[in-house]
Design a protein around this nucleic acid. Structure first.
Length: 487
RNA sequence: GUGGCCAUAGUUUAGUGGUAAAACAGCGGGUUGUGGUCCCGUUGUCGAGAGUUCGAUUCUCUCUGGCCACCCCA
């Protein structure tokens, strides 16, 4: 009778495991990256590194801790990042130190300290590492997050801007992510001063129609008026003076030239006059890269060529015909795409004043910083394929103590031949081991039992057909190589 | 930093003012030599603390954490 297997006598019931110790909690906004996610991280890191090598960026690693003043000077004292998000504390010497909220400041600090101005210019550097901001966590926004970055220091030409954008753009598209480039120029400090006067005048005239938030911005940070999302403010925003029209000749030429390079490289971009980046050190070029809206039901997204008319040509006056693209303005099917509101995958631009600000000789520079968690999130959300780690071709199974020893040796032989094999040496039953091999979809299992040890052989089992053959122990590696097409 | 929603086993979720359930995963087994089915067993102080109550996982408050919007940013 099928259901009357003789059972083992049940053991005495164990006391349920119970601990009196508390498990320490994960700090807010911090995350563990588990093995199941590792493939995404490796794919992204691999791409970041590959591009760095290809475009000639040298790797730089700077400390996570820096003098707090580095960031207050570089990023700007009255920015949100410094004002309310920076981790600052005193160390045992009473020195004010900070967990870095970004890395450009550190890279520039290192450029100055190591006299890199004596190297052939420009100096191109890239980095990858954790950053810290004490922000309120949300999906795609953490207190510890990872940024990669590419910086070109010592080149004032728009080619540098173009290359930085190119690298960032390729970073996403070559990972399979459809993205678009949002581009603007905020000119020089003088350009901005002239612009701000005009902007404030314009908004003052419309003051009564503004939301409360904008009224504050009008006084505190006029540039921010441009990224207000309040509906009532939109028409005012639309007609606001645009900074591109206030650029002095030099900034303007720089920007036009950048657009030409991007056209030449066939990088689609959108001019976005509301793009004002939050770090003080930016001059001239600023940009962000956004993901294309994503609908889960949609077919796999084909690489986006940006719709007709989206790509601007440089011929003709830029300022007039800028079809500004505002984020998806059709919330009717609100539930479909659960994409968080904060969308920028990376941000960057030119920072011609920063080296000087940190005590170096005046040196132009530009760079970009992709947020890695957001890239990984996009890959997962869009279910894009990334290379599997541990794609085992063999499973080494053993039965019995003697066989286990031989299996250990066999595993080493395979490893030296760079044949990726899986094992379950801590288990004894064949059943379990074949189950595991099956679970992992491994095509072949190598089985060693008592009998095989004595005969000096190994069984090769084809997991698909169940067909087995017995091979001489010494010949098993070459036999296996033939089977998996390694010969 | 402001506001809103939420918190049950590893995961996804039921459920109740009288101390809890399902599925999947995990582990063990169906007499230690064979998997992709099947069967059995097993795993939980209902996020933490306080209050109300005879009694709270269920009600209230605080905290912690997650998500969302704002702020801002990667």
């Amino acid at each position: 009778m099928a259901f009357n297997h003789p059972m083992k006598k049940p053991e005495a019931p164990k006391e349920p495991y119970k601990s009196t110790k508390k498990t320490p909690q994960l700090l807010r906004g911090m995350r563990d990256t588990l093995p199941k996610d590792d493939k995404y991280w490796r794919a992204v890191y691999g791409k970041a590194q590959e591009l760095a090598d290809a475009y000639g960026f040298g790797r730089i690693d700077t400390p996570i801790l820096e003098e707090a003043s580095l960031f207050t000077r570089a990023v700007g004292r009255q920015t949100d990042i410094v004002e309310k998000e920076m981790y600052v504390f005193e160390d045992k010497d009473g020195e004010k130190i900070s967990l870095r909220p970004e890395a450009t400041a550190s890279v520039v600090r290192a450029y100055i300290q190591h006299g890199m101005l004596n190297l052939p210019q420009p100096v191109k550097l890239w980095y990858w590492g954790p950053m810290f901001r004490h922000d309120r966590p949300q999906a795609g926004r953490f207190r510890q997050f990872t940024q990669a970055g590419y910086e070109i220091i010592g080149d004032d030409s728009p080619v540098a801007d173009a290359q930085v954008i190119l690298v960032a753009y390729k970073f996403y598209t070559e990972l399979g992510l459809p993205v678009n480039v949002q581009l603007n120029s905020i000119g020089t400090a003088e350009d901005r001063t002239r612009y701000k006067v005009e902007l404030v005048n314009y908004y003052r005239a419309n003051r009564s129609k503004l939301c409360d938030n904008c009224k504050v911005r009008l006084v505190k940070n006029p540039m921010r008026l441009l990224d207000c999302k309040e509906e009532g403010c939109q028409p005012i925003k639309e007609n606001a003076p645009r900074i591109l029209e206030f650029l002095a000749e030099e900034s303007r030429k720089h920007f036009m030239s950048l657009l030409e390079y991007l056209d030449e490289l066939s990088i689609p971009y959108f001019l976005n006059h509301t793009l004002v980046r939050g770090l003080d050190y930016y001059t001239k070029t600023v940009f962000e890269i956004w993901p294309e809206p994503f609908t889960p039901k949609a077919e796999p997204v084909a690489p986006v060529d940006a719709g007709p008319g989206a790509v601007l040509s440089v011929s003709g006056a830029v300022a007039d015909e800028t079809p500004i693209v505002i984020k998806e303005k059709e919330p009717k099917e609100a539930e479909e795409a659960k994409m968080p509101a904060q969308v920028a995958l990376c941000g960057g631009g030119r920072y011609d004043l920063l080296v000087e600000e940190l005590g170096g000789r005046p040196t132009p520079a530009c760079g970009v910083a992709p947020g890695i968690e957001r890239a990984v999130q996009q890959l997962r959300m869009r279910q894009l394929a990334v290379p599997e780690i541990n794609k085992h071709e063999l499973f080494v199974a053993q039965l019995g103590e003697l066989a286990k020893r031989k299996a250990l040796v066999l595993f080493e032989m395979l490893r030296l031949e760079k044949i990726p094999a899986a094992e379950a040496f801590s288990k004894g039953s064949l059943k379990f081991q074949l189950e595991a091999a099956n679970e992992k979809k491994i095509p072949y299992a190598l089985i060693i039992g008592q009998k095989e040890v004595i005969d000096k052989t190994v069984i090769i089992r084809d997991m698909d057909s169940g067909i087995q053959e017995t091979v001489d122990f010494q010949k098993v590696v070459s036999a296996v190589k033939r089977k998996i097409g390694r010969e």
